[in-house]
């Protein structure tokens, strides 16, 4: 059987191939990622509390600062992990190289030659080759986010479901898919092997690699979905803390 990892030809769109300006896509990427980074900086540097009752913002979890009893900028201890995980992510690399570096701005665009381009062979961009380490750290953070998601269902007066609980749960799910569809993880669990059946039967490693490969096809989708969910979760809790909105309890 063919591997499901290959893309399949799509039915030909009827009608005409509309001409599209190449700079539209990178510009949109630049705007979204840019606003997100600015928002994150504002959140990390101008706030010191991400906890509203039983809701904890993903920016502030785990609360490393609290463990040591000193938290000048609580989010700073943790927020760099997901940031670097995303920065070194093979999917986001595509997006920001296109969006911010214009390397390339679009496919097959006649760009001015920049002979000093060195790809990812030199520092600091060579750090992207250590994506696996940021993945290890991101998994640790993810465990805490699951704890937070569960905790979000236990209010002062017992079990319940609020909009915040759902957002945190969805966020944890999206982040799980995003984390475990990672290219570096795919390599770790089996991609590094050349032969899955040489020991006789297909190994557990093959099955895992195959599963991860299927998820990996949608890595970009999970990347955007989890970015949105993290953002939404934090914004929701921030607005609660600011008193702008009130949490809606479903039951």
């Amino acid at each position: 059987m063919a591997q499901p990892l290959e893309s399949r030809p799509q039915a030909r769109p009827q009608g005409s191939a509309k001409p599209k300006a190449y700079w539209v896509e990178p510009l949109i990427t630049m705007l979204i990622l840019g606003v997100w980074v600015l928002y994150s900086l504002w959140e990390v540097f101008f706030h010191n509390n991400g906890t509203y009752q039983n809701y904890i913002s993903p920016y502030f979890s785990p609360g490393v600062g609290k463990w040591f009893g000193w938290h000048l900028l609580d989010a700073l201890y943790v927020a760099w992990v997901p940031f670097l995980f995303r920065f070194s992510c093979y999917y986001y690399r595509k997006e920001y190289y296109r969006g911010f570096f214009w390397d390339p701005p679009g496919c097959a665009q006649g760009d001015k030659p920049r002979p000093r381009y060195s790809g990812e062979t030199k520092w600091p961009l060579a750090i992207n080759n250590l994506h696996r380490y940021f993945w290890y750290l991101a998994v640790i953070v993810l465990i805490f986010l699951w704890k937070d998601a569960v905790q979000a269902f236990f209010f002062k007066n017992g079990f319940g479901v609020g909009v915040g609980s759902l957002i945190l749960l969805v966020n944890a799910v999206f982040l799980t898919f995003y984390t475990f569809s990672c290219h570096a993880f795919r390599h770790m669990v089996g991609g590094k092997k050349d032969c899955y059946s040489c020991d006789g039967k297909p190994t557990a490693s093959y099955k895992l690699w195959h599963k991860v490969s299927q998820w990996n096809v949608f890595h970009g989708t999970w990347a955007w979905a989890s970015l949105a969910s993290v953002w939404a979760a934090d914004l929701y809790i921030r607005l609660l803390l600011m008193g702008v909105i009130h949490d809606v309890r479903l039951f």
Partner: peptide, 18 residues
Amino acid sequence: KAKLPGMYEQFLTLADLD
């Protein structure tokens, strides 16, 4: 699709036929 991927694509792109 597994055994005749080329045929599948050939008809899809050139003859609009699945």
